[in-house]
């Protein structure tokens, strides 16, 4: 198990929160809520060690389009990068729903 954290600049204030996914095999859960500063803070807990660079790539791509000032907690149980990105997009979509 490994814990990682990342920070990204943000421009949009959030008022809602969203929770998607499950900590099941090949899946993850994402908890997204407003942060109190002008940044997005991501804390990842993953069952698979040694993939910090891959996490950074996936998050870089997500934050290329998402500008919300969010506190994001990710609890991962071996999801592939594609599944991680889909869950993040799903959480972002749930904010707009």
């Amino acid at each position: 198990m490994e814990r990682l954290s990342f920070t990204y600049p943000a421009r949009e204030r959030l008022t809602r929160r969203a929770h998607v996914g499950v900590v099941g095999s090949g899946d993850l859960e994402v908890l997204l809520q407003p942060s109190s500063d002008q940044h997005a803070h991501v804390s990842v807990t993953t069952s698979v060690d040694g993939f910090a660079a891959v996490w950074k790539n996936v998050l870089d791509r997500f934050f290329g389009r998402f500008e919300g000032a969010a506190l994001i907690e990710i609890n991962d149980f071996g999801a592939t990068p594609g599944v991680v990105l889909l869950r993040l997009e799903q959480a972002a979509e749930a904010l707009r729903a």
């Binding site: 198990m1 929160r17 929770h19 499950v22 900590v23 859960e29 908890l31 809520q33 807990t45 993953t46 069952s47 907690e73 609890n75 991962d76 149980f77």
Partner: peptide, 21 residues
Amino acid sequence: LGPFDGLKSPWLPLQGVVAQA
């Protein structure tokens, strides 16, 4: 007591298992 209330297992991470919120 939903996921944002943060009532997780204190025991699983001690054993290297990722806890759900």
